[in-house]
């Protein structure tokens, strides 16, 4: 059972959480403006890396908050957790400017 550091509650056991898949995929501002190809990529295409992966987690049986986490999928080590809307601290070069909404893989807001 993983031990996950909720940004609001601190270390809590995995059973209190739900994993919400890949992080930093913002819902497009205007879905209607996307063509089928871009919409299907937004909906269905996800990374499945061997190594560090940015994921969404929800402290469902705790504070109820969604947050982001960097987890190594090989070792299950959490590199860090951070609130929604923020970038990982370990990301060198700091936050990048929000990408254009047409870039559906942009990691703008979520």
């Amino acid at each position: 059972m993983l031990l996950i550091a909720c940004p609001y509650c601190g270390n809590r056991p995995e059973t209190e959480f739900r994993c919400g898949g890949q992080a930093h995929i913002a819902r497009p501002e205007q879905p209607g403006a996307l063509d089928d190809q871009n919409w299907s990529e937004y909906l269905f295409v996800r990374k499945n890396p061997r190594g560090v992966h940015a994921e969404r987690w929800n402290h469902a049986h705790g504070c109820g908050r969604w947050f982001n986490a960097l987890r190594d999928t090989v070792t299950d080590r959490f590199i860090e957790t951070y609130p929604m809307g923020e970038r990982p601290r370990s990301e060198q070069g700091g936050a990048t400017a929000p990408a254009a909404t047409s870039d559906i893989q942009s990691e703008a807001r979520a």
Binding site: A26, N58, G64, W66
Partner: peptide
């Protein structure tokens, strides 16, 4: 409820 909270917290804060 989870579906609503997800959108509220992550897409439309």
């Amino acid at each position: 409820l989870g579906h609503m909270e997800d959108y509220l917290q992550t897409e439309w804060p």
